[in-house]
């Protein structure tokens, strides 16, 4: 088993710039109290992560992130935002040191953990070593579809995907139960009173 050394290429610059933009957008979302701006920035964040997934060769994940993260969840957040105040309540200042300590401790632990992570594309990495290797080698013989991701998603792990579909179905049922008010039968229009600015403060 030969030692794997990560290949440094100009793509690294692209990755770095994408990750830097992700961090900038994340900080902008933290700083902003305007909920409309936060929703739009979260859409941009999803689009940037989709671009990052493309550069990691995970096109299926990128496609999903662009459709779900940047597309539908932005729309749903906007729809939800229209029902509430446009500005976020200012957070209580006295809790800030505790939150900062928790975030710093978690961040330090995560950064410490990255030192043990295998290099990107390492064939000896645990993810590629056992079952991943089998999927790549056996898909042409077992499933005979060109897209290995689809083979894993729909055939090898078809039962998992059935569970995921049930999760989405359950989410839809929950929304109908919570917000329905007879609209499932095409019923009456529902009107919510928007909180005034004084209440939102």
């Amino acid at each position: 088993m030969t030692e794997f050394t990560a290949h440094i290429s100009p793509i690294v610059l692209l990755d770095l710039s994408l990750l830097t933009m992700l961090i900038i957008v994340a900080f902008a979302m933290l700083r902003s109290r305007h909920l409309f701006a936060v929703v739009m920035l979260s859409g941009i964040y999803s689009l940037l992560s989709a671009a990052f997934f493309v550069s990691l060769d995970a096109v299926d994940v990128a496609f999903t992130e662009a459709a779900v993260g940047a597309g539908i969840s932005t729309v749903l957040m906007l729809g939800g935002m229209l029902l509430t105040a446009r500005r976020e309540k200012p957070a209580a200042k006295d809790r800030a040191p505790v939150a900062l300590a928790v975030v710093l401790a978690t961040g330090a632990a995560l950064i410490y953990a990255t030192t043990d992570m295998p290099a990107f594309g390492d064939p000896n990495a645990p993810a590629n070593d056992a079952v991943g290797q089998r999927y790549v080698e056996e898909t042409p013989n077992d499933i005979a579809v060109p897209n290995i991701v689809t083979a894993v998603l729909a055939s090898y792990r078809g039962f998992d995907t059935l569970g995921e579909t049930m999760v989405i179905f359950t989410a839809g049922i929950a929304v109908i139960l919570l917000l329905g008010a007879g609209s499932g039968r095409g019923g009456r229009k529902v009107v919510d009173r928007a909180p005034s600015d004084e209440e939102a403060q």
Binding site: L76, S183, V191, R193
Partner: peptide, 12 residues
């Protein structure tokens, strides 16, 4: 369905 239910509620 989720979209209908969220945007179907009109804020006053």
């Amino acid at each position: 369905t989720i979209f209908y239910h969220f945007t179907g509620r009109e804020p006053d």
